[in-house]
Design a binder for these strands. Structure first.
Lengths: 243, 243
DNA sequence: ACCGAAACGGGGAGACGGTCCCCGCTTGGC
DNA sequence: GCCAAGCGGGGACCGTCTCCCCGTTTCGGT
């Protein structure tokens, strides 16, 4: 859960070796001039990059997106200079953490949908694994200066939205999920319940988070046991927010 | 919080009129020397004191107990000097906010218990009104330097604990609340769901909070719809926490 | 095994933001 | 109508975070 060793999480800031064969042998010197600025990054640099993203994700969930960067570096077990070398400023780091997390959560939604035959079981599996993936790290996206409309993010967010909506729709159609809730309701409550209580790195969040998520999920089952105040929260309700 | 000035956090900054008749008319000058320092506070001072407590409660829920004090003053609609005059340092303010909130939440628990015939309805009423009372403002109590054992707080906390336990026990005995949850589970989830999402003073928390609380409450009903991981959280689990 | 270059870590200057005090003005209360 | 308690704004101090500099280590190719 804490080790993001799985996929090639995001577009690396150091342009990857994608264009490797682009440089013809004939002119290695000329190749180094412009397009072929892709000297495959060192193994330890890649490892550190992933450690930083994982550490930042935890720290952002705990302290918000204003978490001290030196603290992030400390948790990642690296020097602060290394952090700044990989991500020149805070905005860049936040951007990549959000992207990283969005993609991982979306992947877990698709996996749940594909692998669980029961629609409600799929919803449960997604919910618990999104908590483990620290979906709360997406909250900085709602903050003021964040570039919500960056193409990379837009794509990732759309994919996530689609997966979650599908998951919920399946549950509703199977008559297993009450009809008066929206994907926004799930995402908000999920973020809230999986966050550590403020000022308390101390007692382990996870022990309680999964209990309370399960209780919440029990409340989502059909038939509904009560009437809800207000109206269902859609995912648009989350991204819009007019400051 | 950072400064261990904790010692005197107790003394009420504005000695109330408790000792009002202590000053005999015969010697008003002599009276001002020591014991009778209880000149009934002015009406506007009392009003400001309450505004500060209310504003601080909101700010602490939103930013944690490290919220900028100038921000608290701004929300209270007063100058910062007035804030410091009422509460000489942050610890004192936090102390009084926690006390204030604890007492109000406990009162609402007792009211729910006394006035609602149905045990589950009482639990619902308490839950929603605790959210309105910003129970999340009690979280600073879990922070590092906080003097949890101050007599005033201890009494208030005990009263709150007793009321909540009674509320839950009534629900359990009536067979309306599942048996595998503790008061700690309720209080934690309640705090979490009623908190604003970080970095977002923007979209109104309350609109969603009550929906999600209601969903959570639906999950608390008997019969239980699932088996919970871990074990029930007691209220001791909340106050202990060994840093 | 060796070498060059890429990557790393620690320490510190600068800047930002929060705390808290000082002093002239306003307002409540007798 | 008096006067003292209470108020508000502005600013100096100070702790903290950011970000850069430079000597050292480690990777990866030959």
């Amino acid at each position: 859960m804490k080790r993001p060793t799985t996929t090639a999480a995001a577009a690396p800031p150091a342009p990857r070796a994608a264009a490797a064969p682009a440089a013809p042998k004939g002119g290695p010197v000329a190749a180094s001039r412009e397009s072929a600025a892709a000297p495959r990054p060192r193994a330890d640099a890649v490892r550190n990059r992933e450690r930083i993203l994982a550490a930042a994700r935890e720290a952002f969930v705990e302290f918000g997106s204003a978490a001290p960067l030196d603290e992030v570096a400390r948790r990642a077990g690296i020097g602060n200079a290394t952090l700044y070398r990989h991500f020149p400023d805070r905005d860049t780091l936040v951007h990549h953490v959000v992207l990283f997390t969005t993609e991982r959560v979306a992947a877990s939604a698709r996996a749940a949908l594909a692998e669980e035959p029961d629609a409600f079981a799929a919803l449960c599996r997604f919910t618990h694994s999104a908590a483990d993936e620290r979906i709360g790290a997406l909250c900085p996206m709602l903050a003021d200066g964040f570039d919500r409309d960056h193409p990379e993010l837009l794509a990732a967010r759309t994919a996530l939205a689609e997966a979650v909506e599908t998951l919920l729709a399946a549950g509703r159609e199977a008559g297993l999920v009450r009809a008066d809730i929206g994907a926004g309701d799930l995402m908000i409550a999920l973020s809230q319940l999986s966050r550590p209580l403020p000022g308390t790195a101390c007692f382990d969040t996870d022990r309680f988070a999964h209990r309370h998520l399960q209780l919440f999920l029990d409340g989502l089952r059909a038939p509904a046991r009560s009437e809800l105040p207000g109206s269902a929260a859609t995912l648009e309700d989350l991204t819009w927010k007019t400051t």
